[in-house]
């Protein structure tokens, strides 16, 4: 398993990288490479050129402010996960990152790379989608933002054009009245999940006002479902959680594969939805409570 030949450039600046990319329709961007290089070695991908952006120091950052967490294209998962301020501004990011593969992979793999790889089984795209985040992309003709809702087109397919580089992912800050949670079931520790769920719950006056969940490994794209309707009284009850599970299952079209049948995935959707909604609700209540006191 060895890659097919390719040309290789290692630009020192973003401008140079964008220029090369624009001039070479057959080029692909190499950042962490933790998903790309196996594809190359298995010869499932054979780009004519790799544009290695690892030398572009300006893309290596994690910046957090009241609005949210901005992750540069070269920030490794491990850096984002280890960033205390980022964990505070948007705790869901850290919760999900802990579930991305194994630490050794997180030492090299990049968070932005995971977003644009657009794998329906990956954690970070779901987090971005659930939080209504966005990515900033650059090309030789300028920059634009792509909202998460417009980013994931299909399995392993994002709306980036071939001459664009995702330079930053933006994860909005957790609202003062919100709580988040993440959970997944995988066959082995560190494997892609059989089903994973991220939850975002908002409360007001002690009552739930919004419940949204995002699902990975259930459908072939990251999928967000609004479950607020399951909580008409604004409280978490066993019946409401059952209804939330029903709503989620109705909104999803789970796939079968060698590791899990679609009906089993439905079961996991219910179980995990219940778990993360309860946890996110508790999180929200504790945050609001802390605010009050």
């Amino acid at each position: 398993m060895k890659p097919a030949p390719f040309e290789f450039v290692r630009p020192a600046s973003l401008a140079e990288a964008l220029e090369v990319l624009a001039a070479n329709p057959d080029a692909k961007v190499l950042a962490g490479g933790q998903s790309l290089i196996p594809l190359l070695s298995m010869r499932l991908a054979a780009p004519g050129m790799l544009v290695d952006i690892n030398g572009i120091g300006e893309l290596s950052y994690v910046r957090s402010d009241r609005e949210g967490v901005r992750v540069g294209a070269l920030a490794r998962h491990a850096e984002v996960e280890g960033d205390a301020r980022a964990r505070e501004v948007q705790p869901l990011l850290g919760l999900a990152l802990r579930q991305v593969a194994h630490p050794t992979i997180r030492n090299r793999g990049t968070t932005v790379g995971s977003v644009v790889h657009a794998d329906g089984s990956a954690e970070i795209p779901v987090v971005l989608a659930l939080l209504n985040g966005r990515v900033a992309v650059a090309s030789s003709s300028g920059r634009r933002d792509i909202a998460a809702a417009d980013l994931f087109l299909g399995p392993m397919e994002s709306s980036l054009k071939h001459d664009e580089i995702a330079v930053e992912a933006f994860f909005p800050a957790i609202e003062h009245d919100a709580g988040v949670a993440f959970d997944e079931v995988a066959r082995r520790n560190g494997d892609y999940a059989l089903c994973g769920v991220a939850a975002h719950v908002r409360v007001s006056g002690g009552r739930i006002v919004s419940v949204r969940t995002g699902y990975l490994s259930v459908c072939d794209v990251p999928t967000v479902v609004d479950l607020t309707a399951a909580f008409p009284d604004g409280v978490v009850t066993p019946a409401a959680l059952d209804d939330a599970g029903d709503l989620a299952v109705a909104a999803l079209d789970p796939v079968s594969d060698i590791h899990a049948s679609a009906v089993y995935r439905c079961r996991l959707v219910r179980t995990l939805t219940r778990r993360v909604v309860v946890a996110a609700h508790e999180h929200a209540m504790s945050r609001v409570g802390a605010e009050v006191s």
Binding site: V185, R187, S261, V263, Y264
Partner: peptide, 8 residues
């Protein structure tokens, strides 16, 4: 036997 099969 996998969890999925146990569920079945």
């Amino acid at each position: 036997i996998s969890p999925s099969e146990l569920y079945d």
